[in-house]
Write a protein that binds this DNA or RNA. Structure first.
Length: 258
DNA sequence: ATGCCTTCGCCTCGAAGA
């Protein structure tokens, strides 16, 4: 069983790369972020033809999350419980469900832009609301996976140039404390069970051609409860998904379960 | 090496991403 998280940076732009990637890797469950499309225009048929059940929660231009699964997708939840405003205006950043024995929460955490920005305060508040949602509605006694693009590095190992990024967006102490609050619920940063070295990244900047010089950040994560982590036998970043023409700026993270 | 690329839509420029 393989479970993937991948910020695809537009599901429609990435489909020509996503479909062959699915065929090659055959993941059972795929959590996507930044689909950037309203639900009516989501490429549902193409993904169903590839063998997946599809749940999506999208909006125009920005954000958007989706879950693909070879198994039935049950108990779907869209958004944070206290999302405002309601309806079409709310930001599409959370998609939860149950698939087989797994409770899954797929998240696209706000970017924050800059620590001086109002968007930064929104990001910190948003992470607090995510903690509340997990506290009130989920149990770490289950096989719980909270995965997605968190837009936060856990520590300096996740940063190609820690001095340059010191206290900047994605690396500030309040953001990292917010991630620790998630860990304190009884979740673990699953990749670190298998890899402790630095220079493991999931995002590289297009503008500075970061991928070519491995100047990246590790901001896409799989947080797992103890029962989920116990069943997990590997977590890997698929760097090959960045090769060639037209990749996302993020690489997928693949967790394999026994 | 965050003014350098990529995406979307008010679509040939501006805004946002991270």
């Amino acid at each position: 069983m393989k479970i993937v998280t991948w910020n695809v940076n537009s599901i429609r732009a990435r489909l020509p790369r996503l479909l062959p990637w699915l065929e090659e890797n055959e993941p059972e469950i795929v959590c996507l972020q930044e689909t950037k499309v309203v639900d009516d225009l989501f490429p549902q048929e193409e993904l169903e033809d590839a063998g997946y059940n599809v749940e999506k929660f999208g909006q125009k231009t920005y954000n958007g999350v989706a879950i693909l699964s070879q198994y039935p997708i049950e108990n779907v939840v869209k958004g944070l419980p206290d999302d405002e405003p309601s309806g079409d205006e709310r930001e599409a950043r959370v998609l939860g469900c149950q698939i087989e024995k797994f409770q899954i929460l797929n998240v696209y955490v706000p970017n924050g832009h800059d620590i001086e920005s109002d968007k930064y305060l929104f990001k910190l508040q948003w992470l607090k609301r995510l903690v509340r949602m997990l506290t009130e509605g989920y149990s770490v006694k289950d096989r719980l996976i909270v995965c997605g693009d968190f837009n936060v590095t856990f520590d300096d190992r996740d940063v190609y140039d820690p001095e340059e990024w010191r206290d900047k967006i994605h690396c500030s102490k309040p953001e990292r404390r917010a991630m620790q609050n998630l860990i304190d619920l009884g979740l673990k940063d699953a990749l670190r069970k298998f890899h402790t070295d630095r220079d493991i990244y999931t995002w590289w900047d297009f503008r500075t051609r970061g991928f070519q010089r491995n100047a990246g950040l590790r901001i896409d994560h799989m947080l797992m409860s103890a029962p989920a982590l116990k069943a997990c036998k590997s977590v890997e970043v698929d760097m090959t998904a960045r090769d060639g023409q037209g990749p996302s700026d993020h690489a997928p993270v693949i967790a394999t379960f026994r």
